[in-house]
């Protein structure tokens, strides 16, 4: 073996060793902190009175999702969150949805969010929310109207709200809160006032919610 062969192999093997070592070390630290990051600086921005909520207002644990209806990763997370909403229905857990449309990436995200606010005003937020996530990526204006029709919303009010962007400010307020909390992408979850950094699996999420319930 020539010297450069040995050097290259040495560097490659050492780098892989360092990566695996760092992975194991940081992974153990993540496990110790229960898969949630440090508490956020401005917990009052996590939810506001006008947010759609599922569960008792005074629940011990609050799960907040900052989401975008056109974001595929939010769509992938949706079935899992829906399952958790059912499983924790009789426990002291409430789920809050905040709008965080990534308008640069997703052309329908903004209007979808506004449509969801109108559905909320008409008392059908979660039904509309489920329908949009389950129908991704069909979120054009015509699609939004079709889902509203299927849920029996008042179509005249719905169309007006979309035409006049009545709920633009509600969405913008959520986005401003999200930015203040340091959100860069969607979906971002918070369990009480801690940023959830674990994986999007039922086991990982439930263990974090359960430990928050026991605190």
């Amino acid at each position: 073996m020539t010297t450069d062969t040995k050097v290259i192999i040495g560097v490659i093997v050492a780098t892989v060793g360092i990566i695996i070592g760092a992975g194991l070390y940081t992974n153990r630290n993540a496990a110790q902190t229960g898969e949630v990051g440090p508490s956020v600086d401005q917990p009052e921005r996590l939810s506001q009175e006008d947010d759609p909520v599922l569960g008792a207002q005074d629940a011990k644990v609050t799960v907040v999702e900052f989401g975008d209806f056109q974001c595929p990763a939010c769509g992938s997370l949706h079935p899992l969150l829906k399952q958790l909403k059912e499983e924790y229905a009789d426990q002291s857990v409430k789920f809050v949805f905040r709008h965080f449309p990534l308008t640069q990436l997703h052309e329908h995200a903004q209007l979808s969010a506004e449509a969801a606010v109108e559905a909320q005003k008409q008392g059908k937020f979660w039904e509309y929310h489920d329908k949009m996530f389950e129908s991704q990526p069909a979120l054009t204006r015509a699609d939004l109207e079709k889902y509203a029709q299927e849920l029996g919303l008042n179509m005249e009010a719905f169309r007006t709200a979309l035409d006049e962007h009545t709920h633009r400010d509600v969405v913008a307020a959520d986005v401003a809160d999200g930015r203040a909390l340091g959100i860069r992408g969607t979906p971002t979850l918070f369990i009480n006032d801690q940023h959830y950094t674990g994986s999007y699996s039922a086991t990982a999420l439930k263990s974090s919610i359960d430990s928050a319930l026991q605190q």
Binding site: G23, T26, T33, E35, A73, R184, G185, T186, Y200
Partner: peptide, 19 residues
């Protein structure tokens, strides 16, 4: 594998991909 933050452009693209 860890809770370390992933540095990412302003569009949050790598968070979406990694999620």
């Amino acid at each position: 594998v860890s809770a370390l933050p992933l540095l990412c452009g302003d569009d949050g693209g790598c968070h979406i991909v990694q999620a």
